[in-house]
Design a protein around this nucleic acid. Sequence first.
DNA 1: ATAGCTTTTGTGGAAATCCACAAAAGCTCG
DNA 2: CGAGCTTTTGTGGATTTCCACAAAAGCTAT
Lengths: 407, 407
Amino acid sequence: MNPFATHFESLEEFADRVSELLQCPITIEDANHRLIAYSGHEHYTDPARTATIIHRRVPERVINSLWREGVIPKLLQSEEPVRVAEISEVGLGNRIAISIWRNKEVLGFIWAIEMNEPWTEQQLDLLKQAAKSAKNLLLQLQIRKNKKEERIQEFFWKLLTGHFPSPHEVIEQCHQLNVHVYPFFSVGIFQFQQHIQTQVERQIDYLLKTTQQLAVPLYTIDHQRLIVLVAPSSNIYGEAHIERFFRSFITQMKERFRVDIMMGAFGNVYECYTKIAKSYEEAQTVLKMKRAFPHPLANIQGYQHLGMYQFFDLLFEKKRHGDFHNVALENLKQYDAQHHTNLVETIETYLDYDSNVNETAKALNIHPNTLAYRLKRISEIGNIDLSNMSEKVKLYIDMKLDKYRTT
Amino acid sequence: MNPFATHFESLEEFADRVSELLQCPITIEDANHRLIAYSGHEHYTDPARTATIIHRRVPERVINSLWREGVIPKLLQSEEPVRVAEISEVGLGNRIAISIWRNKEVLGFIWAIEMNEPWTEQQLDLLKQAAKSAKNLLLQLQIRKNKKEERIQEFFWKLLTGHFPSPHEVIEQCHQLNVHVYPFFSVGIFQFQQHIQTQVERQIDYLLKTTQQLAVPLYTIDHQRLIVLVAPSSNIYGEAHIERFFRSFITQMKERFRVDIMMGAFGNVYECYTKIAKSYEEAQTVLKMKRAFPHPLANIQGYQHLGMYQFFDLLFEKKRHGDFHNVALENLKQYDAQHHTNLVETIETYLDYDSNVNETAKALNIHPNTLAYRLKRISEIGNIDLSNMSEKVKLYIDMKLDKYRTT
DNA sequence: ATAGCTTTTGTGGAAATCCACAAAAGCTCG
DNA sequence: CGAGCTTTTGTGGATTTCCACAAAAGCTAT
């Protein structure tokens, strides 16, 4: 006989019933570790549970330790209860956890605190039955969510394409759709190795929902790309926060789910919501440039750190139009071709290494004096003053533009 | 009784007659020291005269010494004969010269070689009469020239505005107008302090016609600007030749005629005649940038050496559109405002001096260690890697663009 | 092949840079 | 005012750069 066969008004009522039967505190989470319901009886409660209830989500530190300990992978693999030993550094007491399944998908988890005595087989069976019964209750939530999700997706695309002329409209829409409005934001893109499958979509959703490094009020998936709206908590260090989040997202996708992300990119941080489209464009520019200049931009994600590559699209357009042919560079190329020398490579490397003689010589495998000699020749043949920033800049950009052409 | 009252078939005939009467070699030049006629009698001839006859113009070295010795200024001031002592380093023997006048304008010169004996008063009078008679003969030449000149002016403006789609048409027109076609060319502009008066026009014409540093097949005057088509003799060192010519033109205008030229500028050297319009635009860009950045571009005249300023128009357009606001720079500005520091000035000067610590410190009147400290702070506050060329370039350009805005 | 060029590598010394550390001066805020 | 911060200047030493000069190696054209 199933003790949960009765009708429950709410999930809270269900949680209380489970707690009553098992004589311990119960917490129910969705697949993304957001709090769905918890029992209210007066029992001992560990700090991790208290924090979860207060913030309506499991703290990220706790989630991370659970992954590290292998608990969550186990929960995602089987329908059996999992015993979790105390993890005192995150305030987690002894626990019993079980996943809630529908078909092959995990809808959520039930967490029980293991009080003084170890659980009996009977108690574990009871928990399994509870997990089965929770399924239907969770499904109802799910359906309500999905409908809303679709409308939110549409809204996000409108934002990305600059559909809203005034910020008021955006904020109004946010309120209607129950999307939290943050003071600062940026648009980011993750480029995946492959088309993003449904399973990966769930894993993305999981990571985005569980992270607490910054808020991700909106995201969408488009072929091989994941587009996110991120809201760092501070304006001044926003860039750095997003940067860190992007790196951890990429490593977590890899380590936890074995999903490779080729690269991430994000635009500037803005305050006005009409600038979402601009931030999105900037993120796209970063991706484009990273593809064209993989080596120098390997560690760049933010538009701010794109440096001079920010305006390469513009310059390249002009160059294709036949403008700025650089006589100095042409002379150097010609000299290289006629004398089998490497003057262009030399000056490019030299500038890549910020005019540092030692490093450049090392990179080119030549003696520093050889480098000095070549630089002298370069300034002669190209008629360039290598101690003039403006000329150096022009030459550097022209060389890089040449490479861009070939992409 | 005037011995030159008869009709002369040609200027040569006239020159011979003068030579006969004075018993010495006679050379007649126009106002720009081009050979118009010379006597053919067998007399002693100094090397300067020989060279003049062979090249159909007075060698530039000779003209320059005549200016230096004050001969030409004297000729341009009075109608009296001028005695010229030997200038052996340019092969010029003892001479008597006189200018040919119409109203207040000098049309040309008559040169006589003073043979063994000094001239008598009678001989000098004869020369004065010859100069008077030469006037009418020269005037006829002048009128024929002026008509052609107008059509050439129109042609040049068509070239500057890109009116001809194919080079063949250009070359055909050149042949029709008797304009020499050169293999390489560039368009240059001189910006004068004031509107160019008729008198200055003649002085310009004089300098352009007498120079032999490079060919100036076409030129025109437009308000405060003189626009020239220059044809350097070599392609490889074309830039340098034009550069030198521009400098000497400016100093000569100043020294000889007390006319101030604010600046000169010229575009790239091209081979195809349809690119005249482009070279002209480039020259205009140089002028524009020199106006906006007088200090760093004080010594720049050629478009090739504009360096990064070549594309500032383009970038500024984009910037005005609201793109690339540089968070690093904004942070630095804010810090400067709040703490009464000079970080922006510091980094700008540092980059102006090509990252040279000593020079920068000297320019800013601070201790090198102070500079080092400030640079550390700059990289912290702006979150900039100052050993990354691309970031430096971006920052430098953004700072200079900021200055461009205020122009 | 060899003379005459360019290019590479080496040596050594003066100058500049970088770095760590510390004293002093200046500014801000309770 | 004075504690605590930032900023400036100073000292000294390891490292790097710059420069001049020279030997050696490589290329090219006669």
